[in-house]
């Protein structure tokens, strides 16, 4: 075995002389006879020893709490809102598992539509005649009619500030005097 073969095949894994040698005798003999490869081998052993003796980094004391808080926050964020609980039950019964945001949005749209329906049912459900009277459109037309009539009457009545004397012809005035 020459130095190139030795350097190609040597594999130092642990510092406890755990050398993987494909041809054990050949490697051992070469190590004994070649000081250069022996030095290389020692260097690799020392490197492995340095790696093995690295201390374990100690985590910050509050790291576990921080992780748990972050997960709790994530859990709350991704949990369906309380108003969506009926939907969640229905979806679970159907073995569906959509994203909580989608469930929340669906629930909100549903409740909005329900509110609109109930409002319409409560305030806009009278008969046709009463609706015509009470509807804002008809009242506008009625008031518009009143305004038009009164304006016409005003136009027909002579203005009270009009002075009859000043409007009479001069000849009539002279005759009267």
């Amino acid at each position: 075995m020459n130095c190139d073969d030795f350097m190609t095949h040597i594999q130092v894994i642990r510092s406890s002389s755990n050398v993987q040698l494909p041809e054990n005798d050949g490697f051992t003999r070469h190590l004994e006879t070649c000081p250069k490869c022996a030095a290389e081998y020692e260097e690799m052993l020392r490197t492995v020893s340095l790696l093995e003796n690295l201390p374990d980094p100690a985590p910050p004391p509050d790291l576990a709490d921080r992780i748990q808080r972050r997960i709790a926050k994530e859990e709350n964020f991704n949990r369906p809102a309380f108003f969506a609980n009926p939907f969640v039950r229905v979806l679970r019964a159907l073995k569906l598992n959509p994203h909580p945001t989608l469930v929340n949005c669906t629930a909100m749209v549903f409740y909005l539509m329900l509110t609109v329906f109930l409002v319409k049912l409560t305030f806009f459900s009278e008969s046709d005649n009463s609706r015509r009277v009470s509807s804002p459109t008809s009242s506008v037309w009625r008031s518009a009619h009143v305004v038009t009539t009164s304006w016409a009457e005003i136009r027909g009545i002579p203005t009270p500030i009009e002075d009859t004397e000043s409007t009479m012809p001069v000849e009539v005035l002279i005759q009267e005097r």
Binding site: L54, L63, I67
Partner: peptide, 23 residues
């Protein structure tokens, strides 16, 4: 955390990476 510290070589980054790993 030990793995992240050795991989990143920085305790702050290791803390962040540990949190992100569990998340």
């Amino acid at each position: 955390y030990g793995l992240a510290c050795r991989m990143l070589g920085n305790p702050d980054d290791a803390s962040d990476a540990t949190q992100e790993t569990f998340l």
